[in-house]
Amino acid sequence: MSKKIIFPAFDDLPAVVGQPQGCLWGFFDNDGEKDELGTLNLLTNEIVKKAPEEIQIGKHIQLDWPLNNIEFPGFGRIPCQHNIKDLGPEGFIGHDDELYINTQTSSQWDGLKHFGLQKDGMYYNGLQHENATNTGIMGTHKWCDRGGIIGRGILVDWLSWWENSHPGQDPPSAISSHPVPVSEVEEVLKAQRTECRPGDIFIMRTGFVRWHNAANVATRKLGTYDQHHMIGLANNEETVRWLYSKHFSAVAGDTMGFEAWPYPKDCCLHEWLLCHWGTPIGELWDLEALSEECKSQQRWSFFFSSAPLRVQGGIASPPNALAVF
C-alpha cells in the first residue's frame, strides 16, 4: 500500500457492531477484501523510503534475546530444546541444528491470532476462533508476503528515565504489575527529544531483560513460572487513546506482556492492539545494547528491520530484529 492513510479522530471512527468505540475492523479493507495486516498497512512505500534517513554511522544492533534464556516458561510452555546433530553417520564431517521451540518463550512478535477477544472468541477484523485455528487466514506469513517489517523505530527508554528521575531509588520491580502511565511515556519522549511519527515501530524498555540477566535461578523461576506479574504500560482508556493518536505500525518491549499484567477486567491492551487494531506486539526483546547506543549517540530513533519466520498460518515468530544507526 502506498497511498497516505488518513485516520478520523478516535470518537469519529465508524461504529463496529458489538465492539467498543475505537475498533478499526473494516478500516483497512480494500474492494471488499478483508484486511489481514492491520496497522502494518501504515508502512507505506513513502514511510519506508524515509526510514533509511536514520542510518548515519552504520552501527547495527540485533534485538533478539537468546532463544533459550527463559529456563522456566509459564502458561504451560516448553523451554527451547536445541540438539546439535553430528552428520558423521550420514557420511559427512559437519553438523545440523534441530530446534523445538514455543515462539512465546523468548523474543517474539505476537501475531494477530495469538490472543483473541476473551468474551467474544474473535480476532482482528472479526475472525472467528475456529477459522483462526483451522485456516491460514491472518497468519504471520502474511507479514512475510509483504516483505517483512521495515520502518523507523523509536526507543522509549523508560527505565533510564526513571532511574535518572529518582536517584538512589530502586525502580519498580520488573516482575510486579506496575503500570507505566502514558504521562510518563510523554516525559521520556520529551527528555529524549524524540518525535513520534505515524508508522513508527514503538519500543519501550522497562527492565525485564536486565532483571532476568541479573537474577538468580530461584528468582527467575518465581518471575517467569510461579507467578505472572509483569511491569508494562498501564491498561486504561487513556493509554488506548494515546496509542491510537500516535498511529504506530507495531509496538514492542522487553517484558513478557508489553502491558502491565494481570490486566483489569475493563481494559486489556492485548485485545486493543492485536484484536481491535491489528497491531503486532513484540515481547521479550533485548534492549540493553540498544539503550546504551542510544545514550551514546543521544538519539533514540533508528532504521528498523524485522524478518519473521515464514510459516504458513503462523501464530507468532522470533522477530529477527535489527536497529541500524
Rank of each mutant, 00 (worst) to 15 (best):
Arg146Phe: 09
Arg146Asn: 08
Gly148Cys: 08
Gly148Lys: 04
Gly148Glu: 11
Gly148Leu: 08
Gly148Phe: 07
Gly148Trp: 03
Ile149Met: 02
Ile149Asn: 00
Ile150Met: 07
Ile150Trp: 04
Gly151Cys: 07
Gly151Asp: 01
Gly151Phe: 00
Gly151Ser: 02
Gly151Ala: 02
Gly153Glu: 08
Gly153Phe: 06
Gly153Met: 07
Ile154Cys: 13
Ile154Asp: 10
Ile154Asn: 07
Ile154Ser: 08
Leu155Pro: 12
Leu155Asp: 12
Leu155Lys: 09
Leu155Met: 05
Asp157Gln: 10
Asp157Thr: 13
Trp158Ile: 12
Leu159Glu: 11
Ser160Ala: 15
Trp161Arg: 09
Trp161His: 15
Trp161Gly: 13
Glu163Trp: 12
Glu163Asp: 14
Glu163Lys: 15
Glu163Val: 15
Glu163Gly: 12
Glu163Ser: 15
Asn164His: 14
Ser165Pro: 12
His166Cys: 11
His166Asp: 08
His166Gly: 10
Pro167Gly: 04
Pro167Tyr: 04
Pro167Thr: 02
Pro167Lys: 05
Gly168Leu: 01
Gly168Ser: 02
Gly168Met: 01
Gly168Lys: 00
Gly168Cys: 05
Gly168Asn: 02
Gln169Ile: 05
Gln169Asp: 11
Gln169Ser: 12
Gln169Val: 10
Asp170Leu: 12
Asp170Cys: 09
Asp170Thr: 11
Asp170Gly: 07
Pro171Arg: 04
Pro172Ala: 05
Pro172Lys: 03
Pro172Leu: 06
Pro172Val: 01
Ser173Gln: 01
Ser173Glu: 05
Ser173Thr: 07
Ala174Asp: 00
Ile175Trp: 04
Ile175Arg: 01
Ile175Gly: 04
Ser176Leu: 01
Ser176Phe: 03
His178Arg: 00
His178Asp: 04
Pro179Arg: 00
Pro179Phe: 07
Pro179Ile: 09
Pro179His: 01
Pro181Gly: 03
Pro181Tyr: 00
Pro181Val: 02
Val182Arg: 00
Ser183Arg: 02
Ser183Ala: 12
Ser183Gly: 09
Ser183Asp: 13
Glu184Arg: 01
Glu184Leu: 08
Glu184Pro: 10
Val185Ile: 13
Val185Met: 06
Glu186Thr: 10
